[in-house]
């Protein structure tokens, strides 16, 4: 059964034109999210994962811009839209939950009114009173007491504010929520609850979620499919079981080998040597080769091909290329 695509990104390049050089933060990324899926985009700081999120939202901060590629959101190519058209799609088709979003709530405005304001702006309602019942429903959806609609942010705990932010992201019934490190800086118990809320909202509404994070254990726990991003490129993708049980790319293997777990035998962790590259001057060939223990001659010379194992299941690594191709 073909699944409905909610988001399709093709060969996207988003670069920052800084005085020090061109930062190739997103450099040829393909990514797909289907309806009702929770897809994780994993990478270390500075790999370009947040820039990818900003590109989808049409909010790449200057001096950055989308250089080439396509971003289809249910068949509309966002890259071609004007700012005004984007503004209409933003929040109604795709919304975002930011890292620390709970601190971006307006402190002098009731939380319910902040959601109603967004609905007014997008002409879903014409008078504020019409929005109240919707907001109450949203609050129930995210497990908040509907009477909290007239609370101010300071009257709510961190976890409750995070729920308000999720309710706000759902206000216009979007097809996709981009959650950029939604639980970083929260305590583990709160984090677990928030992820449960997101999953629950997804189950009830069928919204797709693109989770952007560096937290591998979290990804293992909540996601259906995973994209691994390194230095502006997707190096591997697959379903969550394949990625964690039999990772193919040496970078994915390295990441998984570097993360301690509270379960299983205590093992010696092997940190990846070195640091991610400066994206103004990425290494030639495979961008991971200076840190890779399995690097061959060709890795430093030519960009690795994409080896497909199935739909939405590929790795970009010379190790998987046929002998004859490795020259």
């Amino acid at each position: 059964m073909p699944r409905k695509e909610v988001l399709r990104i093709e060969k996207l390049k988003t670069h920052y034109y800084t005085l020090g050089g061109i930062v190739k933060a997103v450099d040829g990324v393909d990514l797909r999210v289907y309806k009702g899926e929770l897809v994780a985009l994993v990478g270390e700081s500075g790999c370009g994962k947040s820039t990818l999120a900003f590109s989808i939202m049409g909010m790449v901060p200057p001096p950055g811009r989308i250089v080439s590629g396509k971003i289809y959101l249910s068949d509309i190519n966002l890259v071609e839209l004007s700012d005004e058209e984007l503004r209409k799609i933003r929040w109604s088709k795709v919304s975002m939950v930011f890292q620390g979003a709970m601190n971006s709530l307006n402190p002098v405005m009731k939380v319910g009114d902040q959601i109603i304001e967004a609905m007014l702006y997008h002409d879903v309602i014409s008078r504020p009173e019409e929005g109240r019942s919707t907001v109450k429903h949203l609050f129930e959806l995210v497990g908040l007491d509907p009477n909290r609609i007239d609370s101010y942010p300071h009257e709510l705990s961190g976890g409750m504010k995070q729920r308000v932010v999720i309710a706000m992201a759902m206000a216009l019934n979007p097809d996709l929520i981009i959650a950029d490190e939604p639980t970083t800086a929260l305590d583990v118990t709160t984090q677990a609850k928030i992820m449960e809320v997101l999953k629950d909202v997804q189950k009830k509404t069928g919204v797709s979620i693109l989770l952007i994070t560096h937290d591998l254990p979290l990804v293992a726990e909540v996601s259906d499919r995973v994209y691994i991003m390194y230095a502006g490129k997707i190096v591997e993708t697959g379903d969550v079981f394949t990625i964690f049980k039999s990772p193919r790319h040496p970078y994915t293997q390295g990441l998984i080998g570097a993360v301690p777990s509270i379960r299983g035998p205590k093992k010696k962790l092997v940190a990846l040597p070195g640091e991610p590259p400066d994206l103004r001057f990425p290494p030639p060939g495979c961008r991971f080769h200076p840190r890779c223990s399995k690097a061959m001659d060709i890795c430093g010379k030519k960009e690795p091909p994409r080896i497909e194992f199935g739909p939405d299941d590929f790795v970009s690594c010379w190790l998987f290329a046929k002998e004859g191709e490795r020259k």
């Binding site: 583990v188 591998l216 254990p217 293992a220």
Partner: peptide, 10 residues
Amino acid sequence: AIPVPDPEYA
């Protein structure tokens, strides 16, 4: 509450 990097167990 701590996520475990093992999707099956999780």
